[in-house]
Simulated scan of single mutants.
Amino acid sequence: MAEAEVNYASVVFKSNKQPPPEAKKAEETVYDEVKKKSESTEQTADTNAGVLPDKKANSRRRHYQLLACCLGILCVILLLGLIAACYFLATLSRDITELNQLNENNTTLLAANRNLTNLNGKLSVDNDNLRRERSNLTVQLGNLTQNYTVLESKITNLTTQNQELREHNENLTTQNQQLKTEKNILTEQIQTVETNCIELNISRAQWSIDAYCPKTNNVRQCNACQEGWLLNSPSCYVIHDAPPPEQITWEQARANCRGNNADLVVAQNQQEKNVLSGYSWPTPGNIGYWIGLRVEGGRWKWIDGSDLNEPSWIAEPTEGQCAVSVHNQGWKSVMCEEDKRWICTQKALTV
């Protein structure tokens, strides 16, 4: 190795954090200056190689130069370390401040999170309640819809019924008017009938007097029965011994008797039955005479509404059957629509 060669020691400091760009740039600048001075020293030594200075003076000078270089590098390194320490402390302080701020923010966020959690739980409960209420309201809405449909149908029916009632009311009003008119007509007819009845009663009274008390040589002589009627106290009888062309049904025979203020003959006991049998004159074919007995409701009934006391006097009742009295044969059951002779009776006049 040449005498002028200088050995340099490098010292490297490491920290947990990289130095800032400014410190790194300053370190590189110092390193370049030291390197230039070393190269300049080597060139000077090479130039003066042929000259033999004093070895001690050169050695002392080299030691001084090396010491000065080391001190410069050490100052630079200390300066860089100080700058790095300041930067690290500033960064650490800022990080601690940020950490404290983050802790405060985290505490605030935790509190806000707890509040939000509580609020979320409350909102979940409210949401469940609202869902249940919605479900209930949906059911109520369905029921109301059904009720509305039913009511709408009823309203439609009532509207139709109302229209029908209006039409019926109009018809009733028309009928009422017609009935009033008919009432007036009937009132007039009733008055006419009453007048006619009065006249008829007078005529009947006169007829009764003439019938029961005929004049003979302008002298009236009253009898218990009308002329032509047979007396068998307490009743009078008339036998309509009509020929076949003039024979009539049971209803017609009764109407004929009523027209003479009488009715078909009734026999409630054996004595009356014997009297009736005596008046049942023999006729060709013995077809018999209508009496006031017919079947009603499955039973034999007299025209006065009483039941036949002796069922053995005639056959079993059959609907549509009436009774006839036949000479020497008793009573027979025949159809009421057949044509027969008939016997009428009325109370005898008592004077």
Rank of each mutant, 00 (worst) to 15 (best):
Y148H: 07
Q268P: 13
E194R: 15
P311G: 04
P53H: 03
K55Y: 09
N129Y: 04
G298D: 06
I287N: 01
G288Y: 00
L349F: 03
N143A: 07
T187C: 02
T138P: 02
W229K: 05
A255T: 02
G305T: 01
G292R: 00
T174F: 06
L230H: 00
T145R: 09
E272V: 03
R166I: 10
C336D: 04
N106P: 06
I209A: 11
N169V: 11
V76R: 04
V6C: 07
K332I: 06
E28S: 08
N269P: 10
G72L: 09
N218K: 10
E5W: 10
D304N: 00
Q321D: 14
L186A: 09
P317H: 08
D263E: 02
E337A: 08
E296N: 01
W313C: 10
A85K: 05
T283C: 12
S325M: 12
P53F: 05
T44I: 07
S15T: 00
E3W: 12
N127D: 12
N113R: 09
E182N: 12
Q206A: 13
E3D: 11
I287R: 03
T181E: 15
L186I: 10
L109H: 07
A323D: 01
P245K: 11
N105Y: 07
Q163C: 00
I190Q: 14
S333R: 02
N196D: 14
A84L: 11
